[in-house]
Nucleic acid binder design. Structure first.
Length: 85
DNA sequence: GCGCTGACTGTCA
DNA sequence: ATGACAGCCAGCG
């Protein structure tokens, strides 16, 4: 496991409920502002229950994707946490 | 170690 | 505003 991956997971797990972070932001916090794709890749292939990746969305406001039910489920979770979409 | 893939992002037409 | 194109990065075969 690379340092970047670990950092990404840490950053995402630090996102408070009711808030969302873009892949770009997460990548930046992880140390690589250009690794937004890598972040998404990590989430899609290696989902971690300790990492609420449903709080990570696209920069344009789209939900992006979710490997545990799709965008619908993701949207539902976010709304449930009080996130305005 | 090389090449392909993907839950991305920014720029151009 | 929408669609296409290119650039970037980590993970996997």
């Amino acid at each position: 496991m690379s340092k970047f991956t670990d950092k990404v997971k840490l950053v995402v797990s630090k996102i408070p409920a009711g808030k969302t972070m873009t892949y770009k932001e997460v990548a930046s916090q992880a140390g690589n502002p250009k690794a937004a794709r890598a972040v998404a890749n990590i989430m899609s292939k290696n989902y971690d229950s300790a990492v609420p990746c449903h709080r990570v969305i696209r920069t344009d406001g789209s939900l992006g994707g979710y490997n545990r039910g799709g965008e619908s489920a993701k949207r539902k979770i976010l709304l449930s946490e009080g996130v305005k979409l």
